[in-house]
């Protein structure tokens, strides 16, 4: 499917979904880690992607875990 799309061009939905799911997983791991640290919010979240080899990429999600307290 991806091979065909490389001929005619256009969106590769399979890849989009794959990366979305991976990103969600990275996000969940980040949230879990923040919870372990005792935080209740994460600010300044950033994403980074790097190609490892053909057909594989690494998704990195990082942010600053903070403890937000209600005002007053």
């Amino acid at each position: 499917m991806a091979g065909l799309k490389n001929i005619v061009g256009g969106e590769l939905k399979g890849y989009t979904e794959l990366l979305q799911e991976s990103r969600k997983q990275a996000q969940e791991r980040m949230c879990k880690q923040a919870e372990e640290l005792g935080a209740n919010a994460i600010v300044n979240v950033r994403f980074a992607t790097s190609s490892v080899t053909a057909g594989a990429s690494e998704i990195l999600c990082y942010g600053t875990a903070v403890l937000v307290e209600p005002n007053g």
Partner: peptide, 26 residues
């Protein structure tokens, strides 16, 4: 606010690692 964009190349053997990109906006 605080919108960022991230570009990465998807290297697949079919395209020889050219011309396939992933854009992430958040």
């Amino acid at each position: 606010i605080n919108c960022r964009m991230e570009t990465s190349t998807i290297s697949s053997s079919a395209s020889g690692g050219k011309g396939t990109v992933e854009i992430l906006a958040y």
